[in-house]
């Protein structure tokens, strides 16, 4: 069974983003992949680039910083601080996209397992709608970049 392309993004309120996805794996493995630097480096950037930094100080008050170097040569960096940690179940942390340092968010990641499959939910809480919209727009730019890269590949293959 494939879950490819099944992430759902909704906007529950004017200042929130909710990302949900199901994985065909138990929750402790999803948690491990999310909190172990060597593993983060293998999935977070997907085919968009290379993860150059995946710092995780997994304790309340500890900080995290993830940096991706895209194939187009620009750096995309995020950092934040852990506020609540329940192993294999829930992580609450702050998140700052370093390209928009004034727009800090609080992310709540929850994992729920049923029959060996895990439902993941990330609720991103921004302070203002403007920041929330900026967050979505930054993803759109990345999406456009991907589209351009694919187009370039397709064109070169002709």
């Amino acid at each position: 069974m494939t879950s490819k392309g099944t992430a759902k993004v909704t906007l529950p309120t004017k200042t929130q983003i909710l990302i949900t996805r199901e994985f065909d794996a138990p929750k402790h493995l999803v948690y491990k992949a999310w909190t172990t630097p060597e593993l983060i480096k293998r999935w977070w950037s997907a085919n968009r680039g290379e993860v150059t930094v995946a710092d995780v100080d997994l304790r309340v008050g500890g900080t995290w910083r993830w940096v991706m170097l895209t194939h187009r040569g620009f750096e995309v960096a995020f950092h934040g601080e852990y506020q609540e940690i329940i192993p294999n179940e829930r992580i609450v942390c702050t998140e700052v996209f370093e390209g928009m340092p004034e727009a800090g968010a609080v992310n709540t990641l929850t994992l729920a397992e049923k029959n060996g499959r895990t439902s993941l939910a990330i609720l991103v809480q921004h302070e203002t709608q403007e920041h929330r919209d900026g967050h979505i727009n930054s993803g759109m730019e990345a999406g456009m970049q991907d589209a351009m890269d694919l187009l370039e590949q397709a064109v070169t293959a002709l």
């Binding site: 996805r21 065909d24 997907a46 999406g143």
Partner: peptide, 21 residues
């Protein structure tokens, strides 16, 4: 607007699927 943002997550989660396997 939202789909484009969703797409970057889909890419990362696709790679995460492989790692989880």
């Amino acid at each position: 607007w939202v789909k484009n943002y969703e797409r970057t997550w889909n890419e990362s989660f696709g790679a995460l699927d492989e790692l989880l396997e």
